[in-house]
């Protein structure tokens, strides 16, 4: 017998196209597309525009697939954390099995198509990145060590290397410098977030540094990683992907970033609570601009170099 009470159940799992798209973490995909594009443009070889477009698209799909696998695995803790409670699985719009299927299918498709459009090395790196994010980070590190985002950050750092390999078919120091830039940027970025998203990680029992080592220690870690990042970011200016535009951008941003990290280190919880974590929040916002402008400057140098300017 059909009655009204059966309606909500029939409605469950009827996800719209947008819900499936949300599984792929579109905001993370934007960063992946941008950094992979910069990696490809910064490479010394030119790429056919169609091949370049298709390759960036498949890298983005691979990143989205790993995002879907991450959401499938983390559905239990996403449900607890305020920041993630509205994601498609905890909100009941998409069933966990669907997310798993989409993640696995798109992983296979993206790697296979990148091998066809670019080369096997790029496809292998993409496969490793998906594996690293879905298995090493999501399934293993995230819930077992406070170094989760330090090591797991490598997954987000691979796209410019893949972009470079799409263009050249091989890896080089410059590609790994771009990798290192994202790798070293990730911990201060996420630890600042963990400082002001106070209870989320505690409630979900995710062993973030703030939970395991305390907030004072997290502040010290942010400063230490920022100092290392500043050296790396400014040093990159003097390599073949750098130039005057990059150096100017890097010096300005790194002075601001270092000041932000120093301010975070200097204050205690009472001061932070008093102003609603204003310094931590502004450092987090600056970190987004920091990465975008560094890669924007590398892209500007690459575009100028291709027209006879840029570089040293």
């Amino acid at each position: 017998m059909t009655d009204i009470s059966s309606q909500p159940q029939a409605f469950e799992g009827e996800a719209s196209f947008g819900d499936y798209f949300a599984l792929m973490k579109p905001r993370v995909m934007q960063l992946v597309v941008f950094t992979a594009l910069v990696g490809m443009l910064a490479a010394p070889n030119g790429v056919n525009p169609v091949v370049g477009f298709a390759s960036i698209l498949f890298i983005a799909i691979g990143a989205g697939a790993s995002g879907a696998l991450n959401m499938w695995w983390d559905a239990d803790i996403d449900h607890i954390m305020k920041r993630t409670a509205n994601r498609p699985i905890p909100s009941g719009k998409v069933q966990p099995g669907e997310a798993l299927s989409i993640g696995v299918a798109l992983s296979g498709l993206s790697v296979m198509m990148l091998a066809l459009s670019a080369n096997l090395l790029a496809a292998g790196l993409l496969a490793f990145t998906i594996f690293f994010y879905a298995v090493i980070y999501s399934m293993w590190l995230k819930r077992s060590t406070p170094q989760n985002i330090v090591i797991g950050g490598a997954a987000g750092a691979f796209p410019p290397v893949i972009g470079w390999v799409v263009a050249t078919g091989s890896m080089s120091v410059e590609a790994w410098l771009m990798f290192a830039l994202i790798f070293m940027w990730t911990p201060p970025h996420f630890w600042a977030l963990a400082l002001f998203m106070k209870s989320d990680y505690d409630d979900a029992k995710v062993p973030m540094l703030t939970v395991t080592h305390g907030r004072k220690s997290t502040r010290k870690h942010i400063l230490a990683y920022t100092v290392l990042l500043v050296i790396l970011a400014v040093g990159t200016a003097f390599t073949s992907i750098g130039g005057l535009i990059y150096l100017t951008t890097a010096v300005i941003l790194n002075v601001l970033f270092l000041k932000g990290a120093f301010d975070i280190w200097r204050r205690d919880e009472a001061q932070a609570e008093a102003d609603g974590y204003a310094v931590e929040k502004s450092f987090f916002k600056l970190s987004l601009l920091y990465l975008f402008l560094h890669f924007g400057a590398i892209m500007a140098e690459a575009l100028l170099r291709s027209s006879g300017y840029g570089g040293w």
């Binding site: 029939a10 409605f11 009827e14 996800a15 719209s16 196209f17 947008g18 499936y20 798209f21």
Partner: peptide
């Protein structure tokens, strides 16, 4: 029903 519009968006998107 909203269910139909969701199905339509899904089918159109996949197509």
């Amino acid at each position: 029903h909203e269910m139909h519009s969701r199905r339509r968006s899904r089918n159109t998107g996949v197509g």
